[in-house]
């Protein structure tokens, strides 16, 4: 079952009709509907192309949150071999919103850290919808330090609505845990590359996305606050999320212009959810490229380049 977003409803109707026709033809083999169905297919393809040619920022947010988009664990399964999950923060718990461990990427040992949102009700609850608690960030710090000691590059895959706003999370130092994770990203003497595969939600994303190179999928977003949150604060009305999404300039395209994202990974027509395998492959190719670009650099050069990149941000403005 394809999950359609609200703006895809007209498309759902056409694709539904074509599917209905074909189902009828299967039941009555003498019916000739192929030319009619093919026309509907063409119409659907045109509509898909038009819809995705220029997605509004709010629609991009919806695509970035699409339930059928590949998740962190899908990328790990497809792109890394010998993935060996390593659990826990050695203090309190293992946070299932953050997956991490050692693995091979193109045969080279690396540390991989990824948000995992889950794909159905049971797994979403288990992974807390990709909203990490302090333990998740502390596990990430531990893994980054491990990578640093053993000279392994770090790959992070970012997909989170944000850090979890809960009572226990606050009591156990959510803010401090995020700060230490960003600190680790900037401190380690090994290459760190990051891909925003869906939602880059505020501080919860910064803690992993602070990297030598950062790529974003074409329809992913990265923002200081969710459009809904921004709308309820600045417009005093959470329904103004479309306006907020426009104003925040949170798309991969705007972030590339601002120098925050280094590259944009094109998504298949109709978004990552329409061709999961193709999307994952493209992300793999980009991770390979980013790592290769950093391979000749020593510890000091890697750290210095990272600092220079962040200190230099904010020199370019966007046109209105």
């Amino acid at each position: 079952m394809t999950h359609y977003l609200d703006f895809e409803k007209p498309l759902a109707e056409i694709e539904g009709k074509a599917e209905e026709l074909r189902a009828m033809a299967r039941a009555n083999p003498e019916m000739d509907i192929e030319s009619e169905a093919a026309a509907l297919d063409r119409k659907a393809a045109d509509m898909l192309r038009d819809l995705y040619k220029k997605l509004t920022p709010w629609r991009k947010c919806q695509v970035a949150r699409h339930p059928d988009r590949p998740n962190g664990k899908d990328y790990i399964a497809a792109l890394f071999s010998e993935y060996t999950p390593l659990a826990g923060d050695r203090n309190f718990a293992d946070d299932h919103a953050v997956m991490g461990g050692i693995a091979r990427f193109e045969d080279r040992p690396v540390v991989v850290i990824a948000h995992e949102k889950g794909h159905d009700t049971a797994t979403r609850l288990r992974h807390n919808f990709g909203m990490a608690r302090p333990e998740g960030y502390r596990k990430a710090v531990r893994l980054m330090e491990l990578a640093d000691r053993f000279g392994m590059p770090v790959v992070t895959l970012v997909d989170t609505p944000g850090a979890y706003p809960g009572k226990g999370a606050e009591e156990r130092g959510q803010a401090e845990a995020i700060a230490r994770s960003t600190d680790a990203c900037l401190r380690i003497g090994v290459p760190i590359v990051s891909v925003i595969i869906g939602e880059g939600g505020s501080g919860g994303a910064v803690a992993f996305a602070t990297a030598n190179r950062m790529a974003m999928l074409e329809h992913s977003v990265y923002s200081v606050i969710s459009p809904e949150g921004c709308a309820s604060i600045l417009w005093k009305n959470a329904d103004k999320m479309r306006e907020a999404a426009e104003a925040l300039r949170l798309t991969a395209q705007d972030l590339k212009q601002l120098g925050v994202a280094d590259t944009i990974i094109p998504e298949p027509l109709g978004g990552a959810q329409r061709d999961r395998t193709g999307t994952i492959e493209r992300v793999g190719t980009e991770i390979g490229k980013m790592l290769k670009g950093l391979s000749g650099m020593d510890r000091d050069a890697l750290i210095a380049a990272r600092r220079k990149k962040y200190l230099g941000m904010g020199k370019t403005a966007l046109a209105g």
Binding site: A179, C185, G203, V206, Y222, S223, A247, L250, V260, L311
Partner: peptide
């Protein structure tokens, strides 16, 4: 926007 968020690493 994102430039304010980038003050966390900066």
């Amino acid at each position: 926007g994102i430039l304010s968020l980038m003050q966390m690493p900066r």
